[in-house]
Design a protein around this nucleic acid. Structure first.
Lengths: 208, 208, 208, 208
DNA sequence: AATGAATGAGTATTCATTCAT
DNA sequence: TATGAATGAATACTCATTCAT
């Protein structure tokens, strides 16, 4: 009765975060229609009604959860893109590709990507644009830039940098997806191994 | 429109097909939880109860729809795999890759792949195994075989055929996905163009 | 295809009887709300639609089934009532009570009685009146008559014949019910034994 | 009427009781299959969903309602059985029979008995056993004991106490049933009168 | 601010009834 | 006549949302 119930009382500024974390897991597992607010509340350790203090509807919670997750991802992507590394273009590419691999292997990203592929963003065009522009396009642009520099420097063979960047993201995305569903592709090696295989293959295609 | 909407038609052999077609569209768009039996019935042009003459539950209808779609896909895949083409290994690969591209660009396949990626098969392990083994693995095995022959004949550079096959399927799958969501990737060219780009890139990576 | 399907073709005048028999069993087991037309049709060996050639609604079928069953019972009761037996009043009573016992132990009667007790005739006042007047009251009147004669002749002790008749029907009905639900009253002996017990007890109460 | 119909009252301890009361009435009138959850909810003055906060399914609610009603009945029966009364065996019997009459004339009991007779407990063997053992058998045992004492003391004529007890319960049960369906047996007098008639008749059969 | 009991619109499912064959 | 596929109104049950506490 008068024991202090954890998570109740105090720290109201933590509530949204807790809820979003729980929403992330539940929506990630069962999708927008399949997830139940009850489960999200239980997982967040709050009452069902509490969710409505911070989010208007289930859809709003979903939207917000995707937005926040994407926001984190985008910040991360920005940090990566702005990191300058000296040395050969190839090693720059390797460095970037490695970071990007770590990035898209992160659970935060995997879940969002799954929702995207599942078509769950159908009714949230802003989020779709958000994802397409700020994640996919931006990531590709950075790689395209690196490749263009490699072509200019003679390290890479002349080719369309945009197409090459698209091939890059195809390989990385697909593998990230498979790795995240290992029960599906048990033959896949460790993350480091897969990264090496991708780099090896990719560089063979673009190196002079 | 010009579909036969006559009420109480009586053609028990056609019913399951009609219903499965409608289920394909609705489940494809909204997923298992999101689709409504009412909409499926309306789209199939039958009464709500009619569905239950042929399928026990919503889940059973979903399962059957995936199974049938996969079945069609697998037959197609088998036909492809068994087709023999004379000429260079490279042209053989091109021929196969082209067919595979057409195959995975087909709407039937796209929808199933989306459901798979969305995790909708979570509760249907048989279907998941079905997909993983009979579609993904099989397709890869055929390509790995071609590549191995190319390596043996000296046309392709020595490399692990299984990994090369995986890279192949990464590129093809990812592009099929993007092409199926063109609103997402408006920059993507025509199917033929994309195929050419993929072939060009891929062959550069494996040719001697 | 051209084999003669039993019960189809020919004998249309048998249809109502077949259906009523099946209705008797299904309604008897599951009640008006619980029984399914599908099961009745299957049990009757006819198509579901056939039922509607002979009965307007489920309720009508129920009503008819009860009416027919009651009709048979009433005929039987009439035959019993009109049978004259010579000898002492006591032996006359015994004879009648035995017949009545056989009668109410019959499945046809048991089912109707169950429906009555279950309140299933709630919405069929004519049937209720039918049962109350033509079965309960009539049976009682006959017994009351016999008892009155017994009192007059000095064989039975002076008492209200109507009340005595009511006690009689209480004992007989209750035992018929228990005997029909033997899983409920496993201790009950054979029909003949029970009859003997009832007669013995009852006669002690009314004999001089 | 004058029931508190205030919306969204909040009294979780009262809810199950309210719902069970309403269930008692609806199931009592229309049976398991015939009763509608909607009506039960309306009668209980709660929303439809509220029922599911306390009971898993319609069947569970039915079972619980019978169980509770039987439980109350059994407590009552226990109290009666344990009551000791001084005086002659005959007056003891009369006392007990009077109480038992009041007991089985209670609506709570009548409804359960009707469900039993209607075969509604078919799918709930525990409840059937509950009823058979704790109500029927127990009640009979008490009477058998009294009768045995009466025989021993010479007040009652020598006879099988179990059979005599069965005759007793036949008469009492049947009359309780008829009295509960007075539209069926309008000739029946008041409860007290009927009790007197039964006692008079019964005692004549067993007294020395 | 926080809760979870209460709600009822929404959905899957059943089944009496119809009707094309 | 007879059928059983087809129908949709009716009903059990779920779950997003509200609100008394």
């Amino acid at each position: 009765m008068d024991t202090v119930e954890r998570s109740r009382r105090r720290c109201p500024e933590e509530r949204p975060g807790q809820i979003l974390d729980a929403a992330f897991v539940e929506f990630g597992q069962r999708g927008l229609a399949g997830a139940r607010l009850d489960d999200i509340a239980r997982r967040a350790g709050v009452g069902k009604g509490t969710i409505y203090l911070y989010f208007d509807t289930k859809e709003a919670l979903f939207r917000e959860m995707v937005r926040v997750t994407l926001g984190v991802a985008i910040e991360e992507a920005e940090r990566m893109a702005s990191a300058h590394i000296s040395g050969s273009i190839e090693s720059l590419f390797q460095e970037y590709a490695k970071k990007w691999w770590t990035f898209i292997r992160d659970e935060r990203f995997a879940v969002v990507q799954r929702l995207v592929l599942a078509g769950e963003l159908r009714d949230f065009p802003e989020l779709m644009a958000f994802f397409a522009n700020d994640i996919v396009i931006r990531g590709r642009r950075v790689v395209a830039g690196i490749i263009a520099r490699g072509i200019a420097s003679g390290e890479f063979r002349p080719t369309d940098p945009d197409i090459a960047a698209r091939m890059y993201s195809a390989i990385w995305f697909a593998h990230a997806n498979w790795a995240a569903n290992s029960h599906f592709h048990p033959a896949l090696g460790s993350d480091a191994q897969v990264l090496e295989e991708m780099l090896d293959f990719y560089l063979r295609a673009i190196k002079q």
